[in-house]
Design a protein around this nucleic acid. Structure first.
Length: 483
RNA sequence: GGCCCUAUCGUCUAGUCGGCCUAGGACAUGGCGUUCUCAACGCUAAAACACGGGUUCGAAUCCCGUUGGGGCUACCA
């Protein structure tokens, strides 16, 4: 059993045609979790056979997003490994070798049908309610005919001869799955000797890289029989398959299709912590034992079980993500939180490290996303202008407000700078507040200190901004009341 | 249209071999509580086995069908 576990090799094969998507991130996570929990190897492979659509910037984004999420790989395009290269575009000669073999063995053939011809065939079949599969027109072209067409300059594609029978395989998550290959038609596996297509490249790579388990999204379920057939005809043994349920948008459509903003960087830029995203996507289609839902990566690894993954698609519920994020914001290391905040606050705030640290501490239970902080905490850095009416609690008279503020001011002035902390302030001011009415004292005080309708409590604010600034703000309030 | 997958509260889900399920938890929602406000927190309420047939002493759990949802159907990946 242990030996077997050591042979676990899984991969994530994104095509660099877009930013790393939440759905992709979840696929990575489950692969990663599966590898880690089986003491296996996780591989990153860039599937860039489509030259037109693949872009370097997307590959960079995928790598950066994965690093940000803390999902590391043991082999990949950036770090290499014993089964490289890890970019399909760099392995053209390998695919070519297999392609030639298939052609020589007459298991694949050149097809010269034009797109127009194919489209006519397709429509004809469709209108009869039949599966639109290739007619097999070029299947039995003689070597002479092929050569002749080649000479004229016709550019052929390469098709694999697909047998007319059922293909069956076992899926870890879904159990037995069956497809009728007879409905497929001879599939195109390459546009030419040095232009392999997706299904072919994947089938070859998974073999060449000695992949033990193919764990991917449900959208690939119907690609599986094609890849099985390709490997079968080449006499390559099969990996074990597991197809994950899709992540859905709230309207139940595939998330990646509708929501162009569902990339990992977008969530990062909104101020979600990577831990929260990991925790959240782990819960999409899978559930730990027991009732604890907030889990670290280590706990996830310990508990993860591919067999317990859900079969039906899961809707991405941003409210739960928000909640998880707020839970992490409240509990992660404060120093780390300050660092994370760098990109979400003005430079001059970030320069005042001590003030920022205190402000974050005072606001952190109010923040769902890091981006929320700036608006909530601006008053710590600069008192906003406000209407005198803000200072009024219920039916208070102006002079009552003034008197209460003056009384508080007097008390605060008597606390020495050294003793200026939250406990002391509370000890000294609360008796006064109880005597004069708690709301009657605390509301005007808090309003004077924050200039806001809603904020942390007055003692917390005083603690953040300090004695001088607090007295200054009370003075401002007093002036507003007089003016 | 064809093929494939799928179906427990609004959402994510628990629900090992059918009985312990008058279906549990979490998010969201409502109510109550708390040293001013906003949060946080605590307590609490409402909220689901899609439908129809079987099998069985007994089904959310097994089988069949219907309906709904999703994916795929490219010389994309």
């Amino acid at each position: 059993m242990i030996n077997q576990e050591k042979n676990v090799r899984v991969r994530f094969g994104p095509s660099p045609t877009g930013f790393l998507h939440i759905g992709g991130a979840r696929t990575v996570l489950f692969n990663w979790l599966f590898a880690k929990s089986h003491n296996g190897v996780f591989i990153l492979r860039i599937e860039d056979t489509n030259k037109e659509r693949s872009k370097k910037e997307y590959e960079e984004d995928i790598i950066n997003s994965l690093k940000w999420l803390g999902l590391d790989w043991d082999e990949g395009p950036d770090i290499g490994g014993n089964y490289g290269p890890y970019r399909q575009s760099e392995k053209i000669n390998i695919y070519e070798k297999y392609l030639e073999q298939l052609l020589n063995q007459e298991k694949a053939y050149y097809c010269f049908c034009s797109k127009e011809e194919l489209e006519i065939d397709r429509q004809a079949l469709l209108s009869q309610g039949l599966a639109p599969k290739y007619s097999g027109r070029c299947r039995n072209l003689s070597a002479d005919e092929v050569e002749k067409k080649m000479k004229i300059g016709d550019k052929p594609v390469i098709r694999l001869k697909i047998p007319d029978r059922k293909i069956e395989f076992q899926d870890i998550i879904r159990g037995k799955i069956q497809f009728d290959a007879g409905l497929m038609g001879d599939i195109i596996i390459a546009k030419g000797l040095n232009e392999p297509l997706y299904n072919f490249a994947v089938a070859i790579d998974d073999y060449e890289m000695n992949i033990s388990h193919v764990i991917r999204g449900e959208e690939h379920l119907s690609n599986t029989p094609k890849q099985i057939l390709i490997r079968e005809v080449l006499n390559l043994k099969h990996p074990i398959y597991a197809h994950l349920p899709l992540i859905l948008a709230p309207d139940r459509s595939k998330l990646s299709k509708r929501r162009m903003d569902a990339s990992v960087v977008d969530y990062k830029n909104q101020g979600y912590l990577s831990e929260a995203i990991i925790n959240f996507i782990a819960l999409l289609g899978w559930h730990p034992e027991g009732e604890k839902e907030i889990l670290s990566k280590e706990e996830l690894i310990k508990q993860f079980n591919l067999k317990k993954v859900q079969k039906a698609g899961a809707i991405f519920d941003v409210q739960k993500l928000d909640w998880l994020n707020s839970q992490y914001i409240k509990t992660i290391n404060p120093i780390r939180l300050i660092e994370e905040m760098e990109n979400f606050v003005p430079k001059d705030w970030f320069a005042k490290k001590e003030l920022l640290a205190k402000a974050i501490n005072a606001e952190k239970e109010r923040i769902k996303k890091l981006a929320d902080f700036k608006e909530l905490a601006d008053f710590f850095f600069e008192l906003p202008d406000y209407e005198p009416l803000l200072l009024k609690w219920k039916n208070m008279e102006n002079n009552q407000i003034s008197n209460n503020l003056k009384a508080v001011k007097l008390k605060l002035e008597n606390i020495s700078e050294n003793d200026f902390n939250k406990d002391n302030e509370e000890k000294i001011i609360m008796p006064l507040a109880k005597e004069r009415g708690i709301g009657d004292v605390l509301w005007p005080l808090r309003a004077a200190l924050s200039g806001k309708q809603a904020s942390p409590g007055p003692f917390e604010i005083i603690n953040v901004i300090g004695k001088n600034e607090s007295l200054k703000r009370i003075e401002i309030a007093l002036n507003k009341l007089n003016g």
